[in-house]
Design a protein around this nucleic acid. Structure first.
Lengths: 236, 236
DNA sequence: CAGGCCTATTTTGCATTCAAAATACTGGTA
DNA sequence: TACCAGTATTTTGAATGCAAAATAGGCCTG
């Protein structure tokens, strides 16, 4: 299905920040870039709007969503709830193989920490969290988690960390792995929530580094409200 | 925006069961019924598919989603997680007015219980749960909760209850109101989860009463797999 | 030369169109 | 009559077309 492909491609474009938050999404350009007509593109835009990755302004097109501080708070809060649930379920259901996967990713992540390689550290970090969610064996939960984390991904994985914050995060991850290994449901949910709470504080303190609005439209924003501005028509 | 209106109308149609689970969704008929062209309808279908209310089969149109037992399990599980989170947050943030709203709905619900009016009971029940979620003051959470509960609404609110199950549910609701009044976060999350766990068991035991597939397509389902069946073309 | 009205252009929202795929129908055959 | 092939019809997926709304220029006035 063409339309689904477009959703995936556009989502990537948005998550990579190729279209920065707040920027206009020009239908025509994207049609050219993706080599499709406007119909499937517009279908994809509707889906992404429902996901919260873009906002649709009536008669004024789509823009990449921008997160307010409240949005970041809310998203982290929900994320905490979902991860806590995932941790609890994972303790009951995780397989040996899945357990190994988490452990392997964890060790790799710690190595990246010692190598001071933040990008790779973040990659493994995400892999761990996603593996735990997957281990919960609940596709509905996985889908929701995916959707919520996508919206804060940039804030979450772009923010730089202080040395001490990083050390703390690693310690928390040791505790996470430990709790999961012991199938300590209560302990795991607690440490997962604390971990995300700290992350949220960090992101909010950093001002969640979203580049401010890209003004593609010019500056002369006239306050046109009076006068029933007649209609422009087409053609010669 | 036309398209958003169509989403709302279609969602209602699906939730009311006017198009039963598994049934085909005929584009053309809906266009006539809703007095719109196929473009906005199809946009709406994509959105509803992303929400999980319908499924899109390539080249074979849309069907109202049917829930497997596993789906019901998963949805209830996530719902538990979301309500637990909502309860916890509500204990911190609920206003006096919101508290009154919950209490009022609760009392009305109990009255309906004594009147043996299941439909009205369910209506108030839902109102209580939604009010608690709203009191969490987290729009992201509210939206997710709305989406998840929509998918199990029919299973949840159509299942008949035994007298004792009903009595138990009412008792649980008394405990819910009590915990919320005392701002007893831990107690509230526990009772909310237990409440939903019981509901899930009830729904699953009832076979979650989804009518089996409506075969709009005729019976002569030929197993056409061999022969590179040539292409049909259009009129002369 | 600044500011506002008015028109040209672009962009958007939806309807319509067109080819490909699926389904329904028909007649032939054992 | 049951089954199958072959054809007509319907349905779907995506491109195109067209009117309304928004934006951008240009011209005039003070």
């Amino acid at each position: 299905m063409l339309h689904e492909e477009v959703v995936v491609r556009l989502r990537t474009i948005l998550l990579e920040g190729e279209i920065p938050p707040g920027a206009r999404i020009p239908e025509r350009d994207l049609c050219v870039q993706l080599q499709i007509s406007r119909t499937p593109l517009r279908e994809a835009l509707k889906v992404l709007a429902a996901e919260g990755l873009i906002v649709l302004l009536p008669n004024r097109g789509a823009r990449a969503a921008r997160l307010t501080e409240k949005d970041v708070q809310d998203l982290f809060e929900v994320c905490q709830g979902l991860e806590a649930l995932a941790g609890e379920l994972a303790c009951e259901r995780i397989s040996e193989q899945q357990m190994n996967e988490v452990a392997t990713a964890h060790n790799a992540m710690v190595q990246h920490y010692h190598d001071n390689d933040l990008a790779q550290y973040y990659r493994r970090n995400r892999q761990i969290h996603e593996a735990i969610v997957a281990a919960a064996g609940n596709p509905v939960l996985s889908a929701l988690y995916e959707s919520v984390t996508a919206r804060i991904r940039r804030a979450r994985y772009v923010t730089p960390m202080t040395a001490e914050r990083w050390a703390m995060a690693v310690n928390e991850h040791v505790a996470i792995l430990s709790a999961l290994t012991r199938r300590d449901s209560l302990g795991l949910t607690h440490i997962l929530r604390a971990h995300l709470r700290h992350k949220r504080e960090e992101v909010l303190q950093a001002g969640f580094a979203e580049p401010l609005e890209i003004q593609t439209t010019s500056m002369n924003v006239r306050v046109r409200k009076l006068k029933g501005s007649k209609v422009g028509r087409r053609g010669p």
